[in-house]
């Protein structure tokens, strides 16, 4: 019809009145086509849709291409680009200082599984509330394409070098050590990664998501097991994931025989429609054994491998006052004169 619009419609906002633009970051300096950029997009969408105030989010990272990416999403959140392999300790300190922060840590496969493996395993043990994302491409990008410790046996570098050491499966490791939400996804699997990230935001405890994220410059060729093509051919999703946030008052019917429903800490529901009949994401031992089977079969399993909403988080264990330690006033953190006198008396 010939009606002329008189005003542009108000931009779409989320439940806290922010537009998706309020979650964007700086312009990426990563290569065109880099999987990491897709992951940044998914983070923006998930945070926007979940209505997370960006000011409550912190984005610690280590060193590498992956760890640069926090500059490319959520500029209204504080970022801490730390030293190589040490993002877990920075994140831990920050969350101890202010338990109201939502920590979204970004690491890479080298940053996590090689130089940072020590801090990685201990972070998993503590079940600190954090979303830990590995942007996993199997190579060191910034130093021009050396193998990392997640590279598969037999995978080939551009230079023709064949990897002859077994990969570290960060998911199996995380489950073994005590992380309470563990999954693997693929930067090219928009729908799955999006649902997983939203569930991660609802989880209280350590979320570890290994996202296979092809390096278009150094590891996307024939013979690589972390290329777009290899992932398209070998990705085996273990479930079809549906996430229903607590604030969406909708009921979704599901068949308990075919779908596992997990109620998250905030009341959100994570529905895992089984693609493998007997897979139970609350069974740690089975999860680990299934991951090892996958390596034998050259499958790249994706999905939520393990979820446990009952385990106490590190913050629960420390039994701290609910106010952030960072801003406790002097009257609370400096005991009175009588305390010093009492201690002195005992030393006389």
């Amino acid at each position: 019809m010939a009606t002329t619009p008189t005003s542009t419609p108000a931009p779409k906002t989320n439940r806290i009145g922010l537009t998706v633009l309020d979650y964007r970051g700086g312009k990426t300096t990563l290569c065109a086509g880099c999987g990491h950029n897709a992951i940044s997009e998914r983070i923006i969408d998930a945070m926007y849709e979940m209505g997370v105030p960006p000011e409550r989010v912190i984005k610690p990272s280590g060193i590498g291409c992956s760890s640069k990416s926090p500059a490319y999403f959520m500029s209204r959140s504080h970022s801490f680009n730390a030293v190589h392999g040490r993002m877990p300790s920075i994140a831990t300190g920050a969350v101890l200082a202010n338990q109201k922060l939502i920590a979204l840590g970004v690491s890479g496969d080298g940053d996590t599984a090689s130089i940072g493996v020590g801090q990685f395993v201990h972070l998993m043990r503590r079940n600190l509330p954090i979303i830990y994302i590995i942007e996993d491409n199997g190579v060191y990008g910034l130093t021009k394409g050396q193998f990392s410790a997640t590279a598969d046996l037999g995978s080939k570098l551009k230079t023709g070098v064949i990897n002859d050491l077994p990969p570290i499966d960060t998911c199996a490791m995380a489950i073994t050590l005590g992380a309470t939400f563990v999954g693997r996804s693929f930067s090219g699997d928009k729908r799955q990664l999006h649902a997983m990230l939203k569930a991660a935001i609802a989880h209280k405890g350590t979320v570890m998501i290994d996202v296979v994220s092809p390096c278009v410059t150094f590891n996307d060729h024939e013979g690589s097991t972390k290329s777009y093509k290899y992932m398209k051919d070998h990705e085996e999703p273990i479930q079809d994931i549906n996430f229903i946030p607590a604030f969406e008052e909708i009921s979704v019917e599901y068949d308990p025989g075919a779908t596992v429903q997990v109620t998250m800490h905030d009341g959100s529901r994570l529905q895992l429609h089984k693609l493998e009949e007997d897979y139970d994401p609350t069974d740690r031992i089975r999860a680990i054994s299934r991951l090892h089977e996958a390596h034998e079969n050259n499958e790249v399993l994706t999905g939520v491998f393990y979820v446990n909403t009952k385990a106490p988080s590190f913050i629960d264990m420390l039994d701290m006052t609910p106010e952030p330690l960072a801003t406790l006033p002097e009257s609370v953190v400096r005991p009175g004169r009588e305390v010093l006198e009492q201690v002195m008396e005992g030393l006389r």
Binding site: F80, R86, I90, A91, G93, A94, L96, A97, L325, T327
Partner: peptide, 12 residues
């Protein structure tokens, strides 16, 4: 020291 710095950065 990483935890010290993370905490110091966040204000503790």
């Amino acid at each position: 020291i990483g935890m010290v710095l993370g905490a110091g950065w966040a204000g503790a």
